[in-house]
Amino acid sequence: MPVPKDFASPIRMSAKERAFSLIQRWIIDGTLQPGEKLIDAELAESLGVSRTPIREAFQLLEVQGLVSTHPGKETKVTVIEKVDIFKLYSTMAVLQGLAAEMTAKLIVPEQLEQLRAINLDFANAISSGQAYLAMEIDEQFHNLIVELSDNPYVASFSASLQIHIRRYKYLFLKQPNTTTQASVEEHAAIIAAFEQKDSERAHVIMKQNFIRPMQDLHGLL
Results as ranks from 00 to 15, higher is better:
E139K: 11
I54N: 11
L148T: 01
E200T: 15
V154A: 10
K207I: 05
N143D: 15
Q64H: 14
M13L: 09
E110F: 10
M135L: 13
S90V: 08
N124G: 07
P71L: 04
I145A: 03
M102T: 06
L133I: 12
A134K: 01
G65L: 07
P53R: 06
F157Y: 14
Q196N: 09
R116V: 14
V77Q: 08
E56Q: 09
K197I: 01
S14I: 05
P71R: 04
S21Y: 09
P2H: 12
H164I: 00
G129W: 08
R212F: 12
V204L: 11
E136M: 14
S68P: 00
I23E: 04
P152A: 10
F157C: 03
R25Q: 13
I54Q: 10
T52C: 05
A100S: 11
H218Q: 10
I126N: 07
V63N: 06
E195V: 01
S160W: 06
G30D: 07
F122Y: 13
T75N: 00
Q196T: 01
P176E: 15
R51Y: 03
A117D: 13
A182I: 05
H187I: 10
I205T: 13
Q175M: 15
D29E: 12
I27A: 12
Q162N: 14
I145L: 07
A202E: 05
A19G: 04
R212E: 09
Q130L: 13
D6Y: 05
E186A: 14
F141K: 06
L22V: 11
L217T: 10
S158M: 07
D216K: 00
S128I: 06
V146H: 04
P71W: 03
F20P: 01
D198S: 00
N177Q: 09
E139T: 13
A15K: 12
R201F: 05
A15V: 00
F194L: 10
E17W: 04
S50M: 10
H70K: 15
I23F: 04
F157I: 12
K37R: 13
G219R: 07
Q140V: 00
I145S: 03
E147Y: 13
A193I: 02
K16G: 02
R167M: 14
I80D: 15
K207P: 02
T178I: 08
T69Y: 01
E200W: 09
R18P: 07
K5M: 15
I205G: 00
I126Y: 04
S21K: 08
T178K: 04
L221M: 10
A19T: 07
Q162C: 08
Q181E: 06
